[in-house]
Design a protein around this nucleic acid. Structure first.
Length: 813
RNA sequence: GCCCGGGUGGCGGAACUGGUAGACGCGUCGGAUUCAAAAUCCGAUUCUGGUGACAGAGUGCGAGUUCGAGUCUCGCCCCGGGCACCA
């Protein structure tokens, strides 16, 4: 064999073997299936390190399960609609369709170079009409079932560019291109009733054992199910009451004012008579719609000339318009209890409103509210007949009383809002609706799907070109036949990524999905960035349930297990062009080969943590592969091999190390997903083999053959090209990916003696060697007998002896 | 601001169930090889004191629980992700 490691010839040769064998195409069979999916990329132009890391993790898991004998599906595709294509079109004058398809071709090439084991026959690009026609179809089904509806909703409007801006395109309240102050405009948009599924989406989290707790917690908090009380406050001089929702009816006695959204009907009426109020309301509306902006801005209010009546005390409470209350949340009105809610406290302090504590602290005293609100639950004070009740009792008593008077209702509420599906953009899937003056919005008939997006178009920057295309817009109403207009909004791109995992199981199905999905779904392992913990993953779970309820799918959840990948950093910061700290994977592949890049990506950090990129570390990974290659070359040169027979001595030691490593690597790769520690263990074993003579005894040569055969298989999922080549150099036939994953020989793991740590008062004072089967007393006696231990005991009586079998002895004096 | 993570040598990280802190790799230093260099190989490498055996300190900061805490509890600081139109 070649004396040195030539990654370039090896990688191209091995990839040709895979292609010739069509090694990654799969179909349903009798074996246990394993569906491994990495989040598909947006085709931005070329791969970045985050992609390399994500897809290497997925490939390692896929190849491991293949070697364990499972029928592994690992597909790849393109999340091809989105804003960057339109930006590129404006900048370069290239149609988004062309730009996107060129990027896909380039990135597909890079993925192939990296040697990922994808079944390319299943490739999907979401901008293809053959894909998005089925989400148009789904939308129509939801429309028929009443699960999508139209309502007014606010968008960021750039008055100069005459276009709707994404939140990302609003910088400090101004349009990123025009610099104009962004306005908020309400326009009719399509929404999906994800709130109808809120309970199921929340409750089913409990069954997702393979998901990180952090993600489940984030989703649960996002859905935010609460049980509270809806209370009507009478408004002096008005017939209509002011309705609020609270999860803390126990604090009702402490309500000292009310706060309303600028768009609340009560405010609108008052604003007609008060120009200053109208101005204030406009200011409230100019701020962005992002929740972060809303909660961090300075709290401002404007007092209305009307007052509310406290339902228990009958006191008159001032009513403010407040810039931190939004009409879109709850009822658009809040009862403010400044003693027990921090936001209310800040507002009350700023506007000099009374702050009345009504929940006692742990000692039963009125809490200290001089520095801020106290939100902890406790026993009521200053609350008249409700004094002394705890949270549950106070909730029940107050709810019962108000319900009895017909001015309150117990209610379960969600923080989750319905999903806005409409985007006023060109590069997306058209919403299959026709607007007719007589019939209203009418679904495009199924036979007319897909509604194809005209592709030979280059947006110029002043909004979507679709409304200006009569050939697209003008159409006859499918219901009455009269002239009508096509909807020109397109879908949110989360639509495409909410069901692609199911389409991969049957990419050519003449339906959204077919029965092949029943075999492959659910995804056994899903891998992607933690930044998708809420939105994408929640929408995908929602779609799975929609597809189930339409009779298309049989599974309740799309992803059995989830691995959230950490970010790739350089110099402690996220890689970005503006910071100039990017690393181009292409250059590294060309310098060191795909296997080195893959190996370093897996070695530098566990997958769920952020990874600090290091060029020196890449060289280290490359050095290791060189060393492994030379080790195999030396071994092969040493000649014929007898089977390993070692029962004692150096051979037995080495075999124990080998089988300990096999056990550890199997656990690290198969259960823990800590590929970094698996690689470290393999490196230790390779180091141990490197200490042998080049031409050892026949016995040791046999052990070395056994070890190298195991190492090459264990490393094959991570560095598949070099391992495939080494597999054949070691005298094996076929592809290493079709070999069996090694299994540890229990007999080789047996130890005669153990090393225990001896502590005196919790400090390590000695290490002792004891027989593996030594009992407690023998171990304790050996510990006390140690010279250094005796010195530290210093004649003092031993009060307590703690023996942890196989680990340590602690002597307490 | 709210929700969710993270913080360990000069650096990336290891320590899985409360039981030897620093595996493995990088870097650095010393040595071998070489005419010389690269590559490769060997050794050392948490800090402080000591020739050494060894001793003391040490896992963001401050308290606590425990025979024993990087790991558990409470309070803080800093960094990152998400916050509904970036994907």
């Amino acid at each position: 064999m070649e004396a040195s490691y030539r990654f370039d010839t090896i990688e191209s040769d091995v990839q040709q073997r895979w292609d010739a064998a069509d090694a990654f195409a799969v179909k349903a069979d009798d074996r246990e299936k394993f569906y491994c999916l990495s989040m598909f990329p947006y085709p931005s132009g070329k791969l970045h390190m985050g992609h390399v890391r994500n897809y290497t993790i997925g490939d390692v898991i896929s190849r491991y399960h293949r070697m364990c004998g499972r029928n592994v599906l690992q597909p790849m595709g393109w999340d091809a609609f989105g804003l960057p294509a339109e930006n590129a079109a404006i900048k370069n004058g290239v149609p988004p369709a062309q730009w996107t398809r060129e990027n896909i071709a380039a990135m597909r090439e890079q993925l192939k170079q990296l040697g990922f084991a994808y079944d390319w026959s299943r490739e999907i690009a979401t901008c293809d009409p053959s894909y998005y026609r089925w989400e148009q179809w789904l939308f129509i089904k939801l429309f028929e079932k009443g699960l999508v509806y139209r309502k007014e909703s606010v968008v960021n409007w750039d008055p100069v560019d005459q276009t709707v801006l994404a939140n990302e395109q609003v910088v400090d309240g101004r349009g990123w291109r025009s610099g104009a102050l962004v306005e908020q405009r309400a326009i009719p948009q399509w929404f999906a009733r994800i709130t109808d599924y809120a309970d199921e989406l929340l409750d089913d989290l409990d069954g997702l054992d393979g998901w990180p707790e952090a993600v489940k917690t984030m989703q649960a908090n996002w859905i935010g199910r609460s049980t509270g009380l809806e209370i009507d406050f009478a408004v002096a001089g008005h017939d209509a009451p002011l309705t609020v929702y609270t999860t803390r009816p126990d604090t009702l006695h402490g309500a000292t004012y009310m706060a309303l959204a600028a768009d609340h009907p009560l405010v609108a009426a008052a604003a007609d008579a008060d120009p200053d109020l109208a101005v204030f309301c406009d200011e409230c509306r100019t701020a962005g719609t992002a929740e972060a902006d809303l909660t961090t801005r300075e709290k401002k209010g404007y007092r209305l000339p009307v007052e509310a009546v406290h339902p228990l005390s009958g006191a008159y409470l001032p009513i403010y318009v407040a810039n931190f209350v939004l009409m879109g949340y709850g009822t658009g009105a809040v009862m403010s209890v400044p003693a027990h809610d921090q936001r209310d406290w800040e507002f009350a302090t700023a506007y000099d409103l009374p702050i009345v504590p009504v929940v006692a602290d742990a000692n039963g005293n009125a809490p200290d509210i001089s520095e801020g609100a106290v939100a902890e639950k406790g026993v009521l004070v200053n609350s008249g007949e409700d004094n002394g009740l705890d949270f549950e009792a106070a909730f029940a008593a107050i709810a019962d009383r108000l319900e009895g008077r017909g001015i309150a209702r117990r209610k379960t509420q969600y923080r989750l809002r319905d999903w806005g599906l409409s985007r006023q953009r060109y590069w997306g899937a058209p919403i299959p609706i026709i607007h007719c003056d007589d019939c209203g919005p009418v679904a495009v008939p199924e036979a007319d799907l897909p509604v194809e997006l005209p592709e030979d178009v280059t947006p110029q920057g002043a909004g979507s070109p679709l409304p200006d295309m009569p050939e697209f817009v003008n159409v006859d109403c499918p219901a009455c036949g009269k002239a009508a207009k096509r909807e020109t909004d397109t879908f949110d791109t989360f639509m495409e990524s909410s069901w692609y995992f199911a389409r991969f199981t049957c990419p050519d199905a003449n339906a959204m999905i077919d029965e092949r999905a029943h075999y492959w779904m659910a995804v056994d392992q899903y891998i992607g960035g933690i930044e998708h913990a809420i939105l994408h993953l929640l929408y995908a779970r929602f779609f799975q349930k929609l597809m189930r309820d339409l009779g298309l799918a049989v599974h309740d959840e799309p992803f059995k297990a989830l691995l959230t990948q950490g970010m790739v950093l350089k110099d402690g910061a996220k890689m970005s062009k503006s910071k100039g700290n990017t690393v181009d994977p292409q250059a590294l592949i060309e310098t060191y080969g795909a296997d080195t890049v893959r190996l370093f990506s897996m070695f530098a950090a566990p997958p769920d943590q952020s990874l600090e990129w290091s060029d020196a570390g890449v060289e280290g990974a490359n050095r290791f592969l060189n060393r492994l290659w030379r080790l195999v070359a030396t071994h092969v040169a040493a000649g014929a091999v007898a089977p390993a027979t070692s029962a004692e001595g150096e051979g037995a030691e080495l075999r124990r190390k080998l089988h300990e490593t096999i056990a550890k690597v199997g656990d690290d790769v198969g259960r823990r997903y800590t590929f970094n520690t698996a690689i470290a263990a393999i490196m230790e074993l390779v180091n141990a083999l490197g200490r042998l003579d080049d031409t050892p005894s026949a016995d040791l040569q046999g052990v070395r053959q056994e070890a190298l055969t195991a190492i090459v298989r264990m490393l094959a999922p991570i560095a598949p090209h070099i391992c495939d080549a080494l597999w054949r150099e070691l005298g094996h036939d076929g592809l290493v990916m079709n070999a069996d994953w090694p299994v540890a020989d229990e007999a080789a793991l047996v130890r005669d003696t153990l090393t225990l740590v001896v502590q005196v008062n919790g400090k390590v004072r000695a290490r002792i060697e004891v027989p593996a089967d030594a009992d407690r007393d023998t171990v304790a006696a050996a510990a006390v007998a140690d010279e250094n231990v005796t010195r530290h005991i210093d004649g003092q009586p031993i009060k307590k002896t703690i023996v942890v079998p196989g680990k340590l002895v602690n002597l307490v004096v």
